[in-house]
Amino acid sequence: MPLLTIHHVTAYRYQQPVSLGEHRIMMRPREAFDQRLLSARLDIDPPPSELRWLHDVFGNAVAIALFNQRASRLIVTSEMTLDHAPIAQRQVDVEAYARLFPFTYSSEDMPDLLRSIEREYHDPERIVDNWARGFVSNNGNTETIALLTQIATGIQREFTYVPRHEKGTQSPIETLKKRQGTCRDFAVLMIEAVRALGFAARFVSGYVYNPSRSEGVVGGGNTHAWVRIFLPGSGWVEFDPTNGIIGNRGLIRVAIARDPFQALPMSGTWFGPPASFLGMDVTVDVRRADPALFSPTDHGAINSRAIGVSGK
């Protein structure tokens, strides 16, 4: 399991001091068998008057910061160390009844999967439906893993990745027409496409890194987005249509949601003159850590540098 460090900084800039409202921060990776968080530190400048943690409806770790002072900037720095266990495509196992498409989820799973199967975008002309159906074989022998792999790699191969720092996500139809977009646009397109085929899918926000120097990935230097699809026998499996990755190799989960708006790394409010906001800067650096430099005594530390709050 590679030992990784993540340095994530989000900075908001204002023309003059403004009043800061409540901010929700989702930068802490999820604990799981394939990614074990060893240490986590959250620094906030200016210091919040109150910092508390909660788990949202999807089980994501969310920090809630409240402020009682005015400021011309807000800088949130998250530093983490974790063990990450890559899972390759060949390790994805599907139960016999689901190895060929189409199949029906079991009666035990279906009630909990329904909201992840429901479509989020209107498609009256069935544009997304028809595009997704184009990956299904006409001879009735479409393998489930092959189908989903072809959709993910098809997006990677046929669409152009174009970074966009503005908020919001293109609709799947818009992405199909433009043939370009960001990682979150590609994730939303794939989610809607596989939902059109009856799969349960969720949006994932997190980080991407190069497992080896011989591999290139797109979407580094910022947060990244991809898809999780529920497959009987393996559960929720990662598919990254931006890089054509199947399995979690190079992918670190932070937030899982039904819709990208539920997985924003940081959101909040401020009060002041309308022209006060100057912009937002985000930097993310993921690299291998030296195990000899890691101190086990740091395990579980969550600190706000400015106010000295810590806990587990």
Rank of each mutant, 00 (worst) to 15 (best):
M1W: 14
L4K: 00
T10A: 01
T10F: 00
Y14I: 05
Q15D: 10
V18C: 05
L20M: 01
H23V: 02
M27A: 13
R28G: 00
P29M: 01
E31H: 08
F33E: 11
L38T: 09
D43A: 04
W53C: 06
L54K: 15
N60C: 05
N60K: 01
A61Q: 07
A63H: 00
I64C: 04
A65Q: 01
A71Q: 03
S72M: 03
R73K: 13
T77S: 09
T81P: 01
L82N: 03
D83A: 13
A88L: 12
R90T: 07
V94E: 02
V94F: 04
F101H: 11
F103Y: 08
T104N: 08
S107V: 14
D112A: 07
R115A: 08
E120Q: 15
H122R: 12
E125H: 03
E125W: 05
N130R: 15
W131P: 02
F135D: 01
L147T: 02
T149M: 10
A152S: 11
I155S: 01
Q156K: 14
S171Q: 08
T175R: 06
T182E: 09
D185N: 09
L189P: 01
A196V: 07
A200M: 10
F203H: 08
V204P: 00
V208R: 07
N210M: 15
T223L: 10
H224P: 06
S234H: 14
P241I: 02
N243P: 08
I245A: 07
R253W: 06
V254H: 02
I256H: 07
I256S: 08
I256G: 02
I256M: 10
R258E: 10
D259Y: 12
A263E: 06
L264M: 14
P265M: 03
P265V: 03
T269E: 15
W270D: 01
L278V: 12
V282P: 03
D285E: 09
D290Y: 00
P291A: 04
T297W: 14
H299S: 15
G300P: 02
A301V: 14
N303R: 06
I307Y: 04
G308C: 03
K312E: 11
K312Y: 13
